[in-house]
Computed example of a mutant assay.
Amino acid sequence: MKATVPLPVLVAVDGSEPSLRALDWAADEAVLRGLPLRLVYASLWERYEGTHLAADPDRPSEELVAEDIVETAARRARRRRPDVPVSTDVLAEEAEYALVRESRDAALLVTGSRGRSGLAEALLGSVSLTLAGHAHCPTVVVRGSHDNQTTTPLHRRIVVGVGGHGKQSPAVRFACEEARRRGANLDAVRAWRVPARETTDHPLMSPEAARLHEQEAVDVLDTALENVPGDIEVHRHTVEGPARSVLVAASHDADLLVVGARRRPRTFGLQLGRVAHGVLHHSACPVVVVPEPV
């Protein structure tokens, strides 16, 4: 019987400082999961940046630069985590297409939040959003000052945003697994608001409307968390306000923020809701976007 090869933690590298911090985070996560680490450079940006470093006229400069980037990154990963198997790939393709495809065979995809130059920074911001919206596995965008705290978390707190569908979601399950791996508490957050139409002019006076909507948020949390294993310490939070703002505020003393993104099969374009999009731009800690079927 052929042994099953474990899916790797896949990390996008481009030589920038943010991508190297993402590499460190990914190497630590690979240790926690007992998985191999795969480093991928996927880009056609060198031709646009005007880099001409090829010593061999038969090889394009991009290939030389890419090989140097992944070799340097692999050495860094092996120094940090000598016990993690490391493999590398250079793909001469646009990053968003290549990495979304490669995510089919990954347990987790990790990327930094920006790139090497002004042009690359804009492109990488776009790529990170594309990956979060289309990757086939959970995607981590490493943000904030918590980059090297995977195995020794500062706050021992995983935050998960709970949606309104009233059942345990892939995002909640992912957050539970991460909390267990890290020995962290799980903070489940459900934001709520009173709709504008339910003002003091409405037959339901505002205080009563607020009470009803807050209770609805409590019920949603209870349903979403009813199957959480008993060995995980869970804290429930219902907070009035826009979900994006509530979760960004929670990220300031968290080691990881987990949100779900509803996937619509065969739909073109960015598949991120306003909440996921907002926290990816403003979170103070790494963000995990977990695909959730519609």
Rank of each mutant, 00 (worst) to 15 (best):
V110K: 10
V110P: 09
S113H: 09
R114D: 12
R114T: 15
G115F: 02
R116G: 10
S117H: 10
L119G: 01
L119H: 13
A120R: 06
A120D: 13
E121P: 00
L123S: 06
L124Y: 06
G125Q: 06
S126L: 09
V127K: 03
V127M: 06
S128M: 00
L129H: 13
L129N: 10
G133C: 02
H136E: 15
C137E: 04
C137Y: 03
V141I: 12
V141E: 05
V141R: 07
V142K: 04
R143A: 11
S145T: 14
D147H: 11
D147M: 02
N148F: 02
N148P: 00
Q149W: 07
Q149F: 11
Q149I: 00
T150W: 04
P153M: 05
R156I: 02
R156T: 03
I158K: 03
V159M: 05
V160C: 06
G161C: 03
G161I: 01
G163P: 02
G164D: 15
H165F: 08
H165R: 14
G166E: 10
Q168P: 10
S169I: 12
P170W: 07
R173H: 11
R173G: 06
C176V: 15
E177D: 14
R180I: 12
R180C: 01
G183M: 05
A184C: 08
N185F: 02
D187Y: 01
D187A: 07
V189N: 01
R190Y: 10
W192V: 06
V194W: 04
P195D: 09
A196V: 15
R197M: 14
E198K: 03
E198A: 13
T199G: 15
T200S: 13
D201A: 12
P207G: 05
E208F: 08
E208T: 09
E208A: 11
E208I: 10
A209V: 04
A210R: 15
A210W: 01
A210L: 03
R211Q: 14
L212T: 11
L212R: 14
L212Y: 08
Q215R: 14
Q215I: 08
E216K: 05
A217S: 09
D222G: 04
T223Y: 02
L225E: 01
E226M: 11
E226T: 08
V228F: 05
G230T: 11
G230L: 06
E233L: 11
V234W: 09
V234T: 06
R236A: 09
T238Y: 07
G241L: 09
P242V: 08
